[in-house]
């Protein structure tokens, strides 16, 4: 290649370029397609670029998208907004904040403490992946990350329940406190399950809905259990 090019370019460069103007291209090489180059034909709206916008705008737009999905989880309507543009920022934030709030229990006695940060993290992500694979294997029509996104966002009620539990535990840890925590956790557990079912159940064949809903129920039940049994010190 190099030798051939050297002989072509160095040895007979002038005659080659001189001859090029004479040769009509269409004789040797078939030329197809649009040859004209569009110059400045688009309107500024069409090639709207996010490259030169302020960083603030970028962050605010993403935060708004995450916040909108939070609202969708709290009011689970039959909407496809949570499914259409999925993201994993919300699940990450919820998972990390839940795992952080579950710390500070009996962490000093390693033997019989509550769940560690890594355990909570793994249970949430691994559980969501297994449930997603389960629903895909059963013939669901939803995509992998859509399902992961929905399951992650539907942890939101339980994160709220964790927050309430910590506040209640600040006040005291008697029987009344336990009953309050029990009621809150059960309510939020139902909320999470119903919300995720509302989003995910429609993508399944009707005779397999129960098979898909049961693992979701188990997943949120275990998270609720971790929240309810959280005891400080």
């Amino acid at each position: 290649m190099a030798a051939a090019e050297g002989s072509g370019a160095g040895g007979a460069a002038k005659p080659l370029f001189a001859g090029l103007s004479d040769v009509s291209i269409s004789e040797d090489i078939p030329v197809e397609g649009e040859i004209t180059v569009p110059v400045g034909s688009r309107s500024p709206d069409e090639d709207y670029s996010t490259l030169d916008e302020p960083v603030r705008d970028t962050i605010m737009r993403d935060l708004k998208a995450v916040g909108k999905k939070f609202v969708h989880v709290m009011y689970p309507k039959k909407s496809s907004a949570l499914l259409r543009d999925w993201d994993l920022w919300g699940p990450l934030v919820l998972c990390v904040s839940l795992a952080l709030m579950l710390q500070g229990g009996s962490a000093d006695s390693k033997d019989d403490g509550g769940p560690q940060f890594a355990e909570v993290f793994v249970i949430i992500w691994f559980g969501a992946v297994v449930i997603t694979l389960n629903s895909k294997l059963l013939g669901g029509t939803i995509s992998f990350f859509q399902s992961l996104c929905v399951l992650g966002y539907c942890v939101l009620p339980l994160t709220v329940a964790m927050l309430v539990c910590r506040l209640v535990l600040l006040a005291g840890s008697g029987t009344v406190s336990f009953v309050v925590r029990l009621v809150v956790v059960i309510a939020m557990f139902g909320w999470s399950t119903l919300a995720s079912t509302a989003f995910l159940a429609d993508s399944q064949p009707p005779n397999r809905k129960a098979l898909v809903v049961y693992p979701i129920f188990l997943f949120y039940f275990v998270i609720s259990w971790m929240i309810l049994t959280f005891t400080p010190q």
């Binding site: 009996s106 006695s109 019989d112 403490g113 509550g114 769940p115 560690q116 005891t231």
Partner: peptide, 8 residues
Amino acid sequence: FHYSPQFH
């Protein structure tokens, strides 16, 4: 007796 979830 101190209650612990015994998550392990």
